[in-house]
Nucleic acid binder design. Structure first.
Lengths: 218, 218
DNA sequence: CACCGCATGGACTCTAAGGTCCCATTTTCC
DNA sequence: GGAAAATGGGACCTTAGAGTCCATGCGGTG
């Protein structure tokens, strides 16, 4: 056997700017279509058409549909975490949390509650059929929750939150309220269950504030 | 035109016990398979095999796959509401709510958090591709929430809950926590996010109790 | 007890969609 | 400038899975 192949590994391809752009276009189209129709209901031909590419492009950049879906999981995860980092990394007050809530509600109300959370919908659709996608999504949720719990930690350290507040549990509860809110809003085609759910979680966090603004719970 | 057909409408078929049993077997198999694999990932051949029937049976009882799915939505809705009615129609105390919580958590922990809620998973998968299924699911969620809010109303009427408690909103919040908890537990393959989420919702309800058992929030 | 029509089995058809291939064009590197 | 590899277009193949059909069994009703 030739040992030259070891020095120049065949799996590392040269890649051009154009290639990167195409790959990006494919992911962007897949993201858009699969958010609306779901993963399984979106065909590769749909994606090919929407991304202005061809079959050979799809299979040049992704081994098969499953790998494209996995790449999409990463892609969406990156987008969501980017967006959330922007909104949460400076979180230091309860009113900051309220602003964060309002932004999510407003974005969702533009669709009348439709489509839900890009991560949550994939989680339910893929968890039972692609173990790798599931664990990747699970990690993304954990990172998202950490952005929240980090903010709550800052609030606790600065004396805003009581010492017996548990930032991790509060963050998990808030995330569950958010995801459940997305789900109910999507089923109802109406954003209000999401508002109610988020308000419940916020009131729960509020109950751990050291100096309640006004009366704490009534 | 013959008027005999009016008296004996052609759309009302005679149906035998055997036929009813077959239809039931099909729905039962579809329910089982689609809970695990999801609706779109389950084929009619899978269902045919699991239900010990044949293709002609499927199409004798259901016009097409979509109609089978819609029937399944009704079927699951009936099952869930039956189960929930049993657990909630006598709800009169906070500890009753805790028992209800424990039963759901225990059932889900048997699967290590997998599969999630039969209604919630269909809601995300179907909402954007079958309007009729979506609205049917939305109604089922509403009926489920009503079972909860009815119990909370009883608690308020009997003086357990404060007058300013809003049973409908509390029920929506609890349902969102439940659904979000199912989703996160499914993604994590671990029941604990569901526990945290439900506990948050219960503590929120607890904060509206007139006479807190022990200290209310700490 | 015979007949009509529901119930049933399973082979068959058809199509949507995933995946392959080949050749042309463009970019990169020497 | 030219060779080699990446990028690109799109026809073609294959198969899984939805949906059809027909012959036969069986059960309730007159």
């Amino acid at each position: 056997m030739s040992n030259e192949q070891v020095a120049a590994p065949t799996n590392k391809r040269r890649i051009s700017q154009r290639g990167i752009a195409t790959r990006e276009r494919i992911l962007e189209a897949a993201n858009r279509l699969m958010l609306v129709r779901g993963v399984n209901a979106t065909t590769l031909d749909d994606i090919r058409e929407a991304s202005q590419t061809s079959k050979s492009q799809l299979y040049h950049h992704f081994a098969d549909k499953q790998e494209l879906v996995r790449a999409l999981v990463t892609y969406r995860g990156t987008l969501v975490l980017q967006r959330e980092r922007a909104g949460l990394e400076r979180l230091r007050s309860f009113s900051g949390l309220v602003r964060w809530r309002n932004a999510l509600v407003q974005a969702n109300s533009l669709n009348n509650g439709k489509y839900g959370c890009g991560l949550g919908s994939m989680a339910l659709e893929l968890s039972d059929q692609d173990e790798q996608a599931r664990s990747s999504l699970s990690e993304t949720f954990a990172a998202w929750e950490k952005l929240i719990s980090d903010g709550l930690h800052r609030m606790r350290d600065s004396g805003l939150l009581r010492q017996d507040a548990d930032p991790e549990k509060l963050a998990t509860g808030l995330m569950a309220a958010l995801q459940g809110g997305y789900l109910l809003a999507n089923a109802a085609h109406n954003v209000s269950p999401m508002e109610v759910a988020l308000d419940m979680a916020l009131e729960h966090i509020q109950s751990f504030l050291v100096e309640p603004s006004g009366e704490p719970t009534r």
